[in-house]
């Protein structure tokens, strides 16, 4: 499955990734709308961490309308037509990488589009092909039905 992978040793905290993400998806530079958030470690100045979806898929089993599915590349996506904006996925994301912004009713998450990785000047971000996640309960049911 495709996942945006962050290498902390290479990050210099320029936050171009946040700008790129919001520009790509919302046509504006606004870090609050970005699917990736960079923050500096309080106890280690100059060291940065990224908070971004790792495509684990736990949100698939939380969504009451089955608006969240994994696509063929393994990327977890929200179907805007089915989303009812209940924010269950926002509250239940194990790493708090599902976000909500007041301008939108559908949550914002990373879909490993790779635009930020292309723009990252230090190579701290890359889209990699990792081992597939285990099937969620929802996927097991749907595959059995199919």
């Amino acid at each position: 499955m495709k996942v945006l992978v962050f290498t902390p040793d290479l990050c210099d905290g320029c936050r171009i990734c946040e700008e790129t993400c919001s520009q790509t998806w919302f046509k504006e530079v606004n870090a609050a709308k970005a699917a990736i958030h960079i923050s500096e470690l309080e106890d280690q100045p100059g060291r940065f961490v990224a908070n971004v979806c790792n495509q684990c898929g736990e949100c698939i089993d939380i969504c009451p309308t089955m608006a969240i599915k994994r696509d063929k590349r393994g990327i977890v996506r929200i179907d805007k037509k089915l989303c009812v904006g209940c924010l269950s996925c926002v509250g239940f994301c194990p790493i708090l990488a599902m976000r909500v912004h007041a301008d939108y009713t559908v949550p914002v998450k990373c879909v490993a589009c790779g635009q930020c990785a292309k723009k990252c000047p230090t190579g701290a971000l890359s889209v990699q092909d990792l081992a597939d996640a285990e099937w969620t309960e929802t996927e097991k049911r749907m595959k059995v039905v199919a």
Binding site: C83, V84, G85, C86, L87, S88, V90, G91, F92, L96, V100, H101, A102, T105, V106
Partner: peptide, 22 residues
């Protein structure tokens, strides 16, 4: 949809709702 109930202040709803979900 999220706004079928046409709330007066969606932003406040997202704050209090996502806090409660967590």
């Amino acid at each position: 949809k999220a706004d079928s109930n046409a709330p007066a202040d969606w932003e406040e709803l997202t704050r209090v709702g996502s806090k409660m979900q967590r």
